[in-house]
Design a protein around this nucleic acid. Structure first.
Length: 645
RNA sequence: GCCGACGUAGCUCAGUGGUAGAGCGCAUCCUUGGUAAGGAUGAGGUCACGAGUUCAACUCUCGUCGUUGGCUCCA
């Protein structure tokens, strides 16, 4: 007999060699039907796994991530079987489950191409195979046998994978006519895969290496029930409605022009107004934290980036130098603001008493991003960083680092970004020559970040090898409408630029010392931030960010004069008011949500004109009653204040 | 940059080897006194650009540019 401990702590005894699915059946037949995977000693396993010794045990239903993962992994195998049937000679790469669904990388037979229109055919084949409910069988195999099996099929990618595996750890999973190298776990059979949707086709380099062959990646998602698939597809549709590119166009916030160039956003008046408000908000916060605004040019001599080390690393893949009539003179569009700020730091001798120096600038930078990588406002070639560089003494580093975290957390809270993730990026310990700077400095900087997070109670994931080449960093990531992660706020510690630019301060010992530098951008860039803000709010910005706040509507021409008076008073406060001509069908647009940036409508007529008041309506909330114009101003200010708190 | 898809009126899209349509928007006029409105009429497009096949190309082929789903990249 074996003792099996369940998640609630209870222990039951079973015959040795009982399978997980049999345990589920012993609890209830319905559970056995719904269960998809199990964890034995906290390791996810097949339901067909037999239990030979005492263990902890948990069954996973669809709700558990482990179950979804298993379900989608088996779905990838099902798709592979269908592809094999439809395209003989197809070769397989890898086919894992992902956050939502799964993919399989395949190498199509010579001369064959798969396109979107073929996906339905593959789906149908998958359904056909699934309905046969063939079992998925696991098999342990020796390395030699595995090699000869896949060599006989000329599966070059699988062979490459097997060669990297240890003998004795290799397993196969078979279902129907398909066999795959796979460590599992999988469903007991493919019959449960009922609702199938293949989503898209993409190219993907074998093993993520752009020098190697590009395989065809097919993405799909499956569910145990059709209703769940329908709900998921509807969710995708809803997310598309929040796409910042769509809303940005509708609300006339920004646009792109082929004539201006790829990835070069043009901010329209309303978008510029929104951006200006965000900038002013941040400026105010930064002022309170002791930052000084500076302004620097968009170009600088090439030597500036040779000194910083950026030219050596990125020069070839950037906008190329600007030449002047002078022989040999070269300027670069600035890809970052750091060197300019370093020169500001150097403009006069600094005392230890002056530190920290905090130089802030909404600095527009230019980076020649790969064309395929451009995406709406989230990835562009010209963007404005809410940049600042902090120069401080080593003993001030942690304190300054934490103050920056405070700013970022305050901003995220004010804008109601709750689901952000934080990531600490450290260097790859096995590849230290990729980075510039001494070991000692790197270790100090990395420790400062890890400790700061700990003290702020922030649970950050740690990624090795993700650091910038000059220092470690802490990033704040937010997901867009479709669940893609974008990095917004960033804080980076840098011991290298102060070295390269020979920055100094005079210490209390009357000796020269090297300051530490922190790069930081709470929004990241105005472009990306606005994009993510649009998707989070679905275009319904907080009142204090709204480009236009009020429409004044006279109920007949007779009251135009009074409407003008009202809007004048409002415009003298910081509320923006527009008079609505009655022929403009703005009312219907607001009602139908076609216009999202006019949260208030003021109706003025005889009564209002007589007692100098306005009738107030708030979008989505209806009548707010009649009030004097001054009361309305303080009403809005109160609402704004509430949102800012 | 690479693989796939897409590019028709300001927007969202339909359409066909014989030189184009809808809805919304826009313009003009009418109507509307408590209203997040109604009606009529009208103006908009060398069907992204260039070449080729064809008697004839928006439609087929190739190329370019741009957008887009991914991959790689992201100072």
């Amino acid at each position: 007999m074996v003792k099996v401990t369940f998640p609630d702590g209870s222990v039951k005894e079973f015959e040795q060699g009982i399978s997980a699915i049999e345990i589920a059946k012993s609890i209830s037949p319905r559970l056995a039907k719904e269960v998809l995977a199990c964890s034995i000693n906290n390791e996810v396993k097949d339901l067909t796994t037999t239990i030979t010794e005492d263990c902890t045990f948990k069954l996973h239903k669809w709700e558990d991530a482990e179950a979804k993962h298993t379900f989608w992994h088996s779905s990838a195998h099902l798709m592979a079987e269908a592809l094999q049937a439809l395209y003989p000679g197809i070769k397989f790469g890898i086919g894992p489950a992902i956050e939502s669904g799964f993919y399989y990388d395949v190498d199509m037979p010579e001369g064959k191409v798969i396109t979107d229109s073929d996906l339905v055919k593959v789906e149908n084949k998958m359904r056909e195979i699934a309905s046969a409910k063939s079992e998925i069988v696991r098999e342990d195999i020796s390395k030699a046998d595995a090699l000869s099996l896949f060599e006989s099929k000329d599966e070059v990618y699988k062979i490459e994978l097997i060669n990297e595996l240890e003998d004795g750890t290799i397993t196969l999973y078979k279902q129907g006519a398909f066999v795959d190298l796979c460590k599992g776990p999988h469903l007991p059979d493919v019959g449960g895969i009922k609702a199938i949707k293949l989503l898209s086709i993409a190219g993907a380099y074998w093993r993520g290496d752009e020098k190697r062959k590009q395989l065809t990646r097919i993405y799909g998602i499956t569910f145990p029930k059709k209703k769940m698939l329908d709900e998921y597809l509807e969710l995708l549709e809803e997310a598309k409605k929040r796409d910042h590119r769509k809303i940005g166009k509708e609300l006339e916030l920004f646009t792109f022009s082929q004539s201006v160039g790829q990835g070069l956003p043009l901010w329209l008046p309303k978008g510029a107004a929104l951006r200006e408000r965000l900038e002013n908000f941040l400026k105010k916060v930064q002022k309170a934290y002791g930052y000084d605004q500076v302004i620097t040019p968009h170009i600088g001599q090439k030597e500036l980036w040779v000194t910083s080390g950026h030219y050596a690393k990125y020069g070839q893949d950037s906008f190329q130098p600007i030449h002047t009539p002078a022989e040999g003179e070269e300027y670069l569009l600035k890809p970052m603001n750091c060197p300019h700020h370093c020169e500001i730091y150097k403009f006069k001798p600094r005392s230890y008493k002056d530190l920290p120096v905090r130089l802030a600038e909404f600095g527009t930078v230019y980076r020649y991003e790969q064309s395929g990588e451009l995406h709406g406002l989230t990835r562009v070639r010209s963007f404005t960083q809410d940049d600042a560089h902090i120069y401080c003494r080593p003993d001030q580093l942690k304190d300054e680092f934490m103050k920056v975290m405070d700013i970022i957390l305050y901003i995220f809270k004010t804008l109601d970004f709750q689901n952000f993730e934080t990531q600490i990026s450290l260097r790859d310990p096995n590849n230290k020559e990729k980075y510039i700077g001494s070991d000692e400095n790197w270790e100090k900087a990395e420790a400062a970040i890890v400790e700061s997070c700990k003290e702020k109670g922030i649970e950050a994931t740690v990624e090795l090898g993700e650091a910038a080449f000059y220092g470690p960093k802490l990033d704040f990531m937010v997901k867009d409408a479709l669940g893609r992660r974008w990095q917004l706020g960033t804080i980076q510690v840098d011991y290298n630029l102060p070295e390269r630019f020979e920055l100094e301060y005079i210490g209390s010992d009357d000796q020269r010392h090297r300051p530490v530098m922190i790069h930081r951008a709470p929004f990241g860039s105005m472009e990306r931030f606005v994009a993510v803000l649009i998707e989070h709010t679905a275009g319904k910005f907080p009142l204090w960010l709204t480009p236009q706040q009020v429409v004044v509507l006279p109920i007949s021409e007779r009251f135009n004069e009074y409407a003008e008076k009202v809007s004048k008073v409002l415009n003298n406060s910081d509320i923006r008011a527009e008079i609505d001509d009655r022929n403009e069908k703005i009312g219907r647009k607001i009602r139908d949500n076609e216009v999202k940036h006019v949260p208030f409508m003021l109706i003025v007529g005889e009564q209002e004109a007589e007692n100098e008041s306005v009738s107030v309506r708030r979008q989505g909330e209806g009548d707010k009653g009649v009030m004097s114009v001054n009361d309305f101003i303080s009403f809005i200010n109160n609402e704004v204040k509430k949102e800012l708190e």
